Amino acid sequence: MAGERLPGPATPGADVPVHVGLRTSDMDEATDFCRKLYYGPLRIEPVGDPGRLRFTADVATLGPITVGEVRYGTDIRVSIGALETAYHVLVPLNGFIRSQHRGSAVFADASRAVVYRPTGDIEIDWPGTCRLLSVKVDRAALEREVDAALDQRVVSPLPLGATFDLVDGPGRTWAALARLLLHELRGPDALASRPRMAARWRDMVVSGLALTVEHPYGEEPAGLQGPHRPRTVKRALDAMNTEPARGWTTHDLAALAGVGARVLQESFRQHVGLPPLTYLRRLRLDGVHDELSRSEPGRVSVSEVAYRWGFTHLGRFAGAYRDRFGESPSQTLRGRR
């Protein structure tokens, strides 16, 4: 079956939607389409019968977001280099996918979406029966939205949770909103095809994701993990995220929060799931990993990046880093070659 492209405007604008699509049984054509619409460093390998490939994609771009429904028709494996410039969410509409990202294996189906951060290679096992909603959001757009919503400086890239619920709460609403936007952009006379309305809808998708996905800043996303974090916990979290390299102690953070050390410890276990200094160590490790992932070998050293993020004992740092990411810091840095 030859490729059949769906009609769409030729040139995208900041708030002018562009709708394109493809139906093909040619793997090279499908790969080229996905590279142009989503990411350049992408490889697609058939795991099932290549003769059963029936790639269908219906995709719209709107300023900083790209949203589409995609299916391959045969089992494939997708390998993607570090996204770098975007965050990405995959929502299986039927079937399931398995993926590996940043040392963690994630299973996603119609009940749970998977979230990818800008750093770390991605590998996805995608059965031919799975059709999914694929949403890419430019890195700067999502980070600005979280920053504006919380009125505080955030670490880039955001330490987002790897999945979120699609059955109840904001995740279900956000996925429905993104899918409805794609449906609206298919029609030239739809309300969302008008630039002013498209811009508002675009902002709703970005801000809705910021409120849906899990992150450690301020209060929890509404409805995601129960009651909001108390002000004492928020003050300690804000301090650590603002100055992650500072030599914080539990007593320092407790004094800042206006409670005793034992109260702060218990509040963190209840509302964060980690003791304060364990959270701080993870924050620092993620910061080092993200910086090493973006750095060129020879221009920086592991030790200077580690010191910059507050690690003073390199032996303990290296062990904790390997436990968290499954590789040494130098391997992460060499991976940029």
Score class of each variant (00 low, 15 high):
residue 4 E to W: 14
residue 8 G to Q: 12
residue 11 T to W: 09
residue 11 T to N: 05
residue 12 P to C: 08
residue 13 G to M: 09
residue 14 A to H: 10
residue 18 V to P: 01
residue 20 V to P: 01
residue 25 S to W: 08
residue 25 S to M: 08
residue 25 S to N: 15
residue 27 M to C: 04
residue 28 D to I: 11
residue 32 D to L: 10
residue 34 C to W: 14
residue 36 K to P: 00
residue 38 Y to G: 03
residue 38 Y to P: 01
residue 41 P to Y: 13
residue 45 E to T: 04
residue 46 P to R: 00
residue 50 P to N: 10
residue 50 P to K: 12
residue 57 A to T: 04
residue 59 V to D: 05
residue 60 A to S: 15
residue 62 L to R: 08
residue 68 G to K: 12
residue 68 G to T: 06
residue 72 Y to S: 06
residue 72 Y to H: 13
residue 73 G to A: 12
residue 74 T to F: 08
residue 80 I to S: 14
residue 90 L to G: 06
residue 90 L to E: 07
residue 92 P to L: 09
residue 95 G to I: 00
residue 96 F to H: 15
residue 99 S to V: 03
residue 100 Q to Y: 14
residue 102 R to A: 12
residue 102 R to H: 06
residue 103 G to T: 01
residue 107 F to Q: 07
residue 110 A to V: 04
residue 111 S to Q: 15
residue 113 A to F: 11
residue 115 V to R: 11
residue 120 G to F: 12
residue 122 I to H: 12
residue 123 E to P: 00
residue 129 T to N: 13
residue 137 V to P: 05
residue 143 E to C: 03
residue 146 V to E: 06
residue 148 A to T: 07
residue 148 A to S: 15
residue 148 A to Y: 13
residue 149 A to W: 02
residue 153 R to W: 04
residue 156 S to V: 08
residue 158 L to N: 09
residue 158 L to H: 13
residue 159 P to N: 07
residue 160 L to V: 15
residue 163 T to S: 11
residue 163 T to D: 04
residue 166 L to T: 01
residue 168 D to S: 15
residue 172 R to D: 00
residue 173 T to K: 14
residue 173 T to V: 11
residue 175 A to E: 06
residue 178 A to P: 01
residue 181 L to C: 05
residue 182 L to W: 05
residue 184 E to C: 09
residue 184 E to F: 04
residue 185 L to V: 02
residue 187 G to C: 04
residue 187 G to Y: 11
residue 187 G to H: 14
residue 188 P to R: 12
residue 190 A to S: 14
residue 191 L to N: 06
residue 198 A to S: 14
residue 202 R to C: 10
residue 203 D to G: 09
residue 206 V to P: 02
residue 208 G to E: 02
residue 209 L to H: 12
residue 210 A to P: 09
residue 212 T to Y: 10
residue 213 V to L: 06
residue 215 H to C: 05
residue 218 G to P: 04
residue 220 E to W: 13
residue 221 P to I: 03
residue 225 Q to Y: 11
residue 227 P to D: 03
residue 228 H to V: 01
residue 229 R to G: 00
residue 230 P to T: 06
residue 232 T to M: 07
residue 234 K to I: 11
residue 239 A to K: 04
residue 240 M to A: 12
residue 242 T to K: 15
residue 244 P to A: 06
residue 247 G to C: 05
residue 248 W to I: 02
residue 253 L to P: 01
residue 254 A to M: 11
residue 256 L to N: 04
residue 258 G to M: 01
residue 264 L to E: 00
residue 264 L to Y: 01
residue 265 Q to A: 13
residue 266 E to F: 12
residue 272 V to S: 05
residue 273 G to I: 07
residue 276 P to C: 09
residue 277 L to G: 05
residue 280 L to F: 10
residue 282 R to M: 02
residue 285 L to H: 05
residue 287 G to N: 08
residue 288 V to K: 10
residue 290 D to F: 07
residue 302 V to S: 03
residue 304 E to S: 15
residue 304 E to N: 11
residue 309 W to V: 03
residue 311 F to Q: 03
residue 313 H to F: 08
residue 318 A to S: 15
residue 319 G to C: 05
residue 321 Y to I: 00
residue 326 G to E: 04
residue 327 E to I: 01
residue 327 E to H: 11
residue 330 S to C: 00
residue 331 Q to S: 13
residue 332 T to N: 07
residue 333 L to P: 03
residue 335 G to F: 01
